[in-house]
Amino acid sequence: MFHWESTPLTGLSFLGMVIGAVVVLLIALAVVTYAIYFERKFIGWMQLRIGPNRVGPFGLFQSFADILKLLIKEDVIPDKADRIMFLLAPVIAFVPSFMVLAVIPFSSTHVFTAGLNVGVLYYLAISAITILGVVLGGWASNNKYSLIGGMRSAAQMISYEIPLGLSIVGVVLLSGSLNMNVIVAHQAKMWFIIPQIIGFVVFIIAGLAELNRTPFDLPEAESELVAGYHTEYSGFRFAFFMLTEYVYAFALAALATTLFLGGWSGPFLPSWLWFVIKTAAVIFFLFWVRATMPRMRGDQLMSFAWKVLIPVALFNLLLTGGLYLL
């Protein structure tokens, strides 16, 4: 099997790495574009509407039109905003979202995957940087709604990072490795969703909160905070925040697939297709929740994280450890 880490670092292999990264970037962009399209389409159907159907056949080019619109919009920077921070925030939020994709094993050949030995840890650490961008954006906008949105966001993401991490530890215990490739290999007989069902539930709930999606979409609660931390952002900078959000949705779905659903493994079909199917299923679940749930309230959200999710995750850990010893 091919592994980047076992190939010598020559000019050619470096070029290969760059090309690989660009390909992943393009795939991620395509996924995001069509994730947005399908989200609108699915939620439309769930609400007995048609959804986007004007641009191209079945509205397939709708997202491109939206991106184009955002690109050619004026880049408005509020007068009273902290200019440098304001410009920097979307970048800080956006870059980590692509960086985490490096460790996701998309298929059995690992052409696009870094076989990092601390892959899981890397994902959690890098994704936490995004919080900085969000808080910074909220603060630099010099807008009260943004500030409250940014603060809520920080509180929420930090709180939910803990159950998210704890729920993954169970998987790590079972496979004995932080390397995602190894984790996938360990699921050849049985997906970890079965022994780790509690962990999976905690993971999905904490993941929803990490993504700021319904029912945990408080930071951008439209009906209260207008648009939360990106109220003042427009044009391409706003697009960056949107992109961040959807790349994370993709990354989290991919992570869930890898950790709990057996990753790229599966019979008959090629490995990448299995990965696509599983990831799409998780993403669809995210859309479904969005169409169904109302929003939680801030304090309820916090007490849910600390009083329910973390104890459950710890219990799961204990259980896994105990069973593992036996």
């Binding site: 769930m46 609400q47 007995l48 509407r49 609660a221 169409a291 749930m293 109302p294």
Partner: peptide, 16 residues
Amino acid sequence: YLLDLGAMSPFLYAFM
């Protein structure tokens, strides 16, 4: 009211 509370779908159902 449900839209205010963050649930999208009831709004569209009710309007139907």
